Simulated assay, not measured.
Amino acid sequence: MSSSAKIAYARVSTDDQNLDRQLETLKAYCPDKIFTDHLSGKNLERPGFQQMMDYVREGDIIYVASMDRMARNLDDLLAITKRLQSKGITVHFLKENICLNPGTETSSMSKLIMSIMGAVAEFERSLIRERQREGILLAKARGVYKGRKPIDPDKMQEARKLIDEGFTKTKVCEKLHISRQTLYKYLKQSA
């Protein structure tokens, strides 16, 4: 029987953001392996997340700085934690101080707290998006909104070349540090 491993997972939404605060918190738990992502949590197709899911084994413990680093919405969070527990893996959310152990029914209180915290995080995210939209509309009305920087044509030509060479779109996005939305928008425009 193999010994259990301590795994840490950290995520920020963009390359501009920094993982240091999360990693400092997680290192206190002496993880054997750390997986990271610089991608939005709105989908589960994150390389670090997928590598972690493939890596973990029964008896392992996953430490995550907070629930919103694991998933962006409540449905994904509940599905992920249930999947991990069914594989015999413990999930510990440090900020919320919630530990979900495998093989035992998650206590009603832990489920309630996790559901409430996840719903609050999802609600906060929707408020941020709403305020962002309102701010953009006000800036446009004042004539000061410039929008996003245009897509770099050289980068998009490189993307097209990589796709033609057989790279997956996910790999192209990782290699060029662009979002999938940006790539698909470019591909649609250039079609």
Rank of each mutant, 00 (worst) to 15 (best):
A159Q: 14
N97D: 15
S115H: 03
S13C: 12
K155E: 02
E122G: 03
V91Q: 07
S110G: 05
L26N: 06
E130N: 10
Y145L: 13
R69V: 11
M117A: 14
D75T: 10
T90K: 12
N18W: 06
T81Q: 11
L137S: 14
R83S: 11
Y184P: 00
I89T: 14
T104G: 00
D152A: 04
K161T: 12
I178N: 00
D15V: 14
R142N: 14
P102G: 10
R142F: 07
E130P: 01
K27T: 10
C99E: 15
F35W: 06
L78D: 06
Y55W: 13
K188P: 03
S110N: 15
F35M: 01
G41M: 12
R133N: 04
C99F: 04
V172C: 05
C99D: 08
F35E: 01
E158F: 00
E105Y: 00
A65I: 03
R160G: 02
K87F: 09
R131C: 08
S108I: 02
L19D: 11
T36I: 08
Y9S: 04
Q189E: 14
T106H: 02
Y145G: 10
G118C: 01
R131F: 06
I34C: 07
Q132C: 02
E58M: 12
K155G: 05
I89F: 10
K42G: 03
I128T: 09
P47E: 10
T36K: 05
D68P: 11
N97Y: 05
F49N: 07
P31G: 08
E124G: 04
K175V: 11
K188M: 03
Y186K: 00
E24C: 06
V144Q: 12
P31D: 12
S108R: 00
A119C: 04
S107M: 04
P31C: 08
R129L: 13
A141S: 15
P102W: 08
L162T: 02
T106C: 07
P153G: 06
T36D: 03
S86V: 08
K27H: 07
M117V: 15
N73S: 06
T25Y: 02
D60K: 13
R129C: 06
L162P: 02
I34L: 12
E124Y: 09
F93R: 07
R160I: 09
I178D: 03
S3L: 15
Y184Q: 05
T106K: 03
F123E: 08
K146I: 07
I61T: 15
V56R: 09
N73R: 03
D54A: 14
G143C: 07
I113Y: 01
S190M: 13
Q132A: 05
